[in-house]
Design a protein around this nucleic acid. Structure first.
Lengths: 260, 260
DNA sequence: CAGTGGTCTAGACCACAGA
DNA sequence: CTGTGGTCTAGACCACTGA
């Protein structure tokens, strides 16, 4: 079967029948529009695992874009772990169905996404002088005023976690009522604070009598512990927290990507 | 004070006195050479937190590179969380001293990096039919032959973790002697398998009698549990493992980056 | 060998921040 | 207003892969 006109005889791509609609009048960058549509095609199965994407040069002429723009779109999906590039071979959809990107996990978001209908009880919301560990984590002098937050998180009427957080004073107004209806991280985002990175330590220990009582566990039950310092996009610490979770009802679930 | 010649009156950059040596004959990409030298400058304190990098156009002319190349170098450090870009402002070094990038943590590597001199005892290294959960994780039929590995990891003569791993049969030859002198992930890398991503679940529970005996803990002691499926760069599962750690002697420590 | 992604160039225009 | 990063173009040459 002859190919029509002067079209190059490139290998067929599973992408060929996929229509792309790029809107040059949109404020959304072209590479981003393309990345979204590629991701949708993968998500919906138009591109199956192992399928070749077709070479970048053809793709760019077909779309009326320059090659760097197409590369930028593809690269963003490679970074997400959806595609793999192989020199001399092509770009393929990865074989596994891994999806969820690594995120700064917020327990509230996690539970909400899991449809667990989280409820929060604010136990403490007060200003206190910073203890040594808190001061070190937040980068403030020891004894400086910080906000101390203590919350009990539940799902289905059962306690799940005991959350203790410290924030620099004056960072934002923390209304207890709003804290009970939404997560701390959502409040931070709503205040224009964009979280950027966090350092976490996850461990385990047995519940003491007080924790057991709060969490409705027996004394000595296994607890997951998490200590985290979160930073905004300038690298300034905005939150330090020590959390304990009932191991019988919660675990951390996340995906790692290895950068070459 | 007048500026000499036609030089633009750009804001002074902390980068000005930093010498850069780019080798165009090297096989190392220029953007990568630049990124490494920028990172070194940050690491060594030549660029302090909050310092401006100087604008990209000046930088590229000073270095004799095109702007996209310089951007690529800077972008890689932004991705690492070392720099922040602000439109209309400039590129700054982040304020916090966070360093360690998120990696696919290998316990052996972790312990070695911490100077703990890990020792490994291979308890089992055999081929078995895949149980249901293993088959599902590795994407093989239930009952298909897989390699089952059981190891006891110790530091300072004290047991730390009990590691149970499954790998597809035929993926590579696992020599027990080599497994005792190095980590599983190092052996995978040495076999040309490049790990790409992993899905992890971290939880906790109390030690049963058998685990307590192996790990030299009392029965009921808190244990950290980790279940992980690791994928290579084509997205194919290459390893599934369930590990338990003595919580009294080990915790997970990692850094998250939020992608906008 | 031909085809692929990897890198690089030298410009361009735009949107946004801050004085 | 000026200076910044954000996006985009239309080419170029190279290194690697696999037939």
């Amino acid at each position: 079967m002859a190919t029509r006109g002067g079209r190059s005889r490139a290998a067929v791509s599973a992408l060929d029948p996929v229509p792309f609609a790029l809107d040059r009048t949109s404020p959304v960058p072209l590479y981003y529009q393309l990345a979204q549509q590629l991701e949708a095609a993968i998500e919906q199965g138009a591109l199956a695992p192992g399928d070749l994407l077709g070479n970048e040069v053809d793709l760019s002429t077909r779309l009326g874009l320059s090659r760097p723009t197409v590369r930028q779109a593809i690269q963003s999906l490679v970074d997400k772990g959806l595609l793999v590039r192989r020199r001399g071979v092509g770009t393929q959809v990865v074989h596994s169905q891994v999806r969820r990107p690594l995120e700064l996990s917020s327990l509230y978001d996690d539970l909400e996404a899991a449809g667990q209908g989280p409820a929060t009880q604010v136990v403490r919301n007060e200003r206190v002088p910073a203890p040594a560990d808190v001061a070190a984590a937040l980068g403030v002098p020891e004894g400086a005023e910080v906000v101390r937050l203590e919350r009990l998180r539940s799902t289905h009427g059962q306690p799940v976690a005991l959350l203790c957080n410290y924030l620099p004073a004056g960072l934002l107004e923390l209304d207890s009522a709003r804290l009970e209806s939404t997560g701390l991280y959502q409040l931070l985002r709503a205040s224009g604070i964009t979280l950027h990175s966090a350092r976490q330590t996850v461990g385990a220990r047995c519940a003491d009598a007080a924790e057991a009582a709060r969490l409705e566990e027996r004394e000595g039950a296994a607890l997951l512990t998490m200590r985290r310092t979160a930073y905004d996009d300038t690298g300034r610490p905005v939150e330090y927290g020590t959390h304990v979770y009932r191991a019988s009802r919660y675990s951390f679930d996340f995906q790692l990507l290895v950068r070459p």
